[in-house]
Design a protein around this nucleic acid. Sequence first.
DNA 1: ATAACATATCATCAAGTAATGATATGAAGT
DNA 2: ACTTCATATCATTACTTGATGATATGTTAT
Lengths: 122, 122
Amino acid sequence: MNNNELICCEKIVDKEKVDKARKNLFSDTVTARLAIFFKIFGDSTRLKILMALNVSELCVCDIMATLNMKQSTVSQQLKLLREVKVVKYRQEGKQVFYSLDDDHIHKILTVGIEHIEEDKYE
Amino acid sequence: MNNNELICCEKIVDKEKVDKARKNLFSDTVTARLAIFFKIFGDSTRLKILMALNVSELCVCDIMATLNMKQSTVSQQLKLLREVKVVKYRQEGKQVFYSLDDDHIHKILTVGIEHIEEDKYE
DNA sequence: ATAACATATCATCAAGTAATGATATGAAGT
DNA sequence: ACTTCATATCATTACTTGATGATATGTTAT
């Protein structure tokens, strides 16, 4: 698990660059957490839920209605979204209202859109 | 595939919110492309490659050395990174040098880091 | 032409994950 | 207490994907 140790495989072309690149890596733990975080945005269903919540807080039932999805599907994905703290929720009687947890989510979506819009012409 | 048509399942709690949320959704096509784009960041191996390239352009061999990974693994992931235009490359003799395609990647990584650093205390 | 090398692609397999129906939990009304 | 309703969780299944060894492509040097 020590990724600062240089156990190399083949010939290195530019040792200096390799050393610098190695120093710039995050630890395996941080990298793994980042991957888990980003993975959340890598699914259409979850993206749609986030886009819906980007407008306003919604209860599970209204998320289902907005996206025309089954209850268990929505709940499953909300669970994942909760786990990485991308959404928060509050209970009000029988209903549970979900909303985006912070504005990083908005930022991330924006950067993603910018990126894919650049090759609109294709 | 028409996600603007309201085919609903159960009772809607707040019709106005649901309508607004529906209008804010992207098309299925855009959503799918976004998901494909973000999925790229949802894997530790690819994240490490991107972190390495964040420092400087590297040839495949030096990426292998930096991350201590097999050649086919690196090449496979580079292929995916190319497909979503997150990296670009240039050939120089036998070597192929990869680099980040634009600064959205840097921005995205930064936002991700900010997000996970917020709950460092856990 | 051929040998050596860097990289890409392919095929396989194991592991992960999304959708879904069924079931469980827990709140509000009767 | 019982019913209804909203949401959560569980188990199953089908699909996706990452790692890997083997092979192919293409470049340079001999």
